[in-house]
Amino acid sequence: MSDNSSDEELAPDWIPYRQRSDWADVTPIEQDDGENPVVVISYSEKFKDVYDYFRAILASSEKSTRALELTRDALRLNAANYTVWQYRRDILKALGCNLQQELQYIDDVISDNPKNYQVWHHRRVIVEWLNDPSDELRLTESVLSMDSKNYHAWQHRQWAIKTFNLYDNELEYVDRLISEDVRNNSAWNQRFFVLKHFGFTPEVIQREIQYAVNRIRLIKNNESVWNFLGGILHDGGASISQHEEVLAFCEELYNNNVRSPYLIAFLIDLCQEKCLREENAESREALGRRVAELCDGMIREHDVIRKKYWQYVVDSFQLKLNRLKANNDGERNDGTS
């Protein structure tokens, strides 16, 4: 639970609304939480003061410059109050305020509260009103430079890219993030998002397989890139075992004694798929044994924390294989083929 609100953030020379002559015409309204409330927050004097006046302007429906300023104080005390944000927007609209200035303000709030849902929502609405996304890539880039996995920033960025068709330079940006941190799963996801938009042509799939393979060579034990590789093959429409070069690459790593669980898991998937498609009984047996061996390695040594899972994988696979054999035998006995 974060407690980044607060009084300290209001300027030291801050004067309570109750003492301001330019607010003398307004009667503050107290919060009513009824008799015996629970989960009571012991509001500071400032909090109570600001929100008493917020309730007052809400009640009188005052939409003015001073009311706009008041929402700013209220949000400084609690940036998660969506009613205040909503009322702020209603004021902005009523006064026809300069929305570029509002973007400036939001920049500041976001840099103080980069993980606050409400301020990102506010940002989106203002950008929609302006119909101008020209600052959104810069903003999200700057937030992501502090925390490259900030989910809010990625969501806003994807929204801006989708809504305003800003895909053009995104692959370059993603590429840069992946070079900075090859384990950045958010960046890999964004890569997939951009690629899918442009379409998975055979050329793109080949290029991306190479891209992934090169990064696996750098760091083998990186789940993000293995997942990406699986996704590329799958979404490219081909089953993973149809890409012989990928299988060869995995075998090469394995033969070079790489024992990353992600590599072995990938191999298990490839071998299972190949096995279940294999027509030749002997090759099928061999692939089946391979799957069992690989799972056994996971259970005993390479992925012990998931040993029950790998036992489950090998058991389910055996069941499938037996059913397949029984079907084939049945067909043979029926004389159909």
Partner: peptide, 18 residues
């Protein structure tokens, strides 16, 4: 303790007391 009274530093949770 949380059912009872929260310190003022938790004011950022004011909208989600439920």
């Amino acid at each position: 303790r949380f059912l009872d009274l929260l310190p003022s530093r938790l004011a950022s949770h004011d909208s989600t007391r439920v």
